[in-house]
Design a protein around this nucleic acid. Structure first.
Lengths: 143, 143
DNA sequence: TTCCTAAATAGGAATAATTCTTATTTAGGA
DNA sequence: TCCTAAATAAGAATTATTCCTATTTAGGAA
């Protein structure tokens, strides 16, 4: 079940529509948990056994440079990817590798207004990301 | 010129005082530009030719787990380190690898108050870090 | 529809960052 | 001064990522 909108996204950015790109973009948009390139590749191999890890890395880089996906900084030395590009922030769990999205328009506005007013010397702000570090409490420990 | 306070920091955290630890901590506190483990090692070798890169990594991890230094998330796949542990944020340059510290007590307070009041469901906030992404302007391009 | 070409891909080698292993050394308490 | 657990050096191993090259392919032109 190829998602038609995935094809549209590729076309909109003037990219060649290849089965690999469709599959990769489909996976990253549908996996909600900020997967690594390796995780993405494992998933892809279920339906696409010959895909190459090099292609996955290259394609993710291409998507990122077009602004289709985002890289997520992580504590470990493995890069993670995020199919959500509307502005949002991240909750980092101290006890696990878990990283959740955090949407908060109030927070966005608060920071936007502050940084616009504040004027950091010799620096032009283009974007910002808040990493919120802490713990998921009992009710929500597994996911 | 061994910095006495470096020794004090090690002692305060109940760590064995070794020449390697003194040298490493001295370098990371005095280098202000968020060096990589490799950069730290190069510096150390000037005065300490036999230090092992493995020791540098292990020691930086130890320091980080004791809260003496911080890791800094970076765009590339190389971890960087920060000898400054008072709360602060980072300015990431889009055009280079440069990462500057950004101190702003007003911002800290703003975010603290907001997150304290806001209550993110099922998540207990311990800390936060703001990544401010943008460009250094002409006057300040080289550094 | 067929052909053509630049771009994309597969597969594997190469590189770079980091961790692991083990024998040796050492800090600091007894 | 001695003893032992902890720290270190050196290099091997691992892991993530990039690079290389021959082959394939998407999509525009004829």
């Amino acid at each position: 079940m190829v998602n038609r909108s995935v094809v549209k996204i590729l076309a909109k950015h003037g990219m060649k529509i290849t089965p690999q790109r469709i599959a990769i973009l489909d996976v990253i948009i549908n996996l909600q948990n900020h997967p690594t390139a390796d995780t993405i590749c494992d998933y892809l191999r279920l339906s696409y056994p010959h895909i190459s890890i090099g292609t996955v890395y290259k394609t993710l880089d291409t998507f990122e440079s077009k602004g289709i996906i985002n890289k997520v900084y992580s504590e470990t030395d493995t890069m993670r990817y995020d199919g959500v590009i509307t502005q949002h922030h991240h909750l980092y769990c101290i006890d696990s590798e878990r990283i959740d999205d955090y949407y908060d328009d109030g927070l966005n506005k608060l920071l936007n207004d502050y940084l616009k007013k504040k004027k950091i010397p010799d620096f032009i702000v283009e974007d910002f990301k808040l990493q919120i570090i802490g713990r998921f409490n009992e009710k929500n420990k597994t996911k």
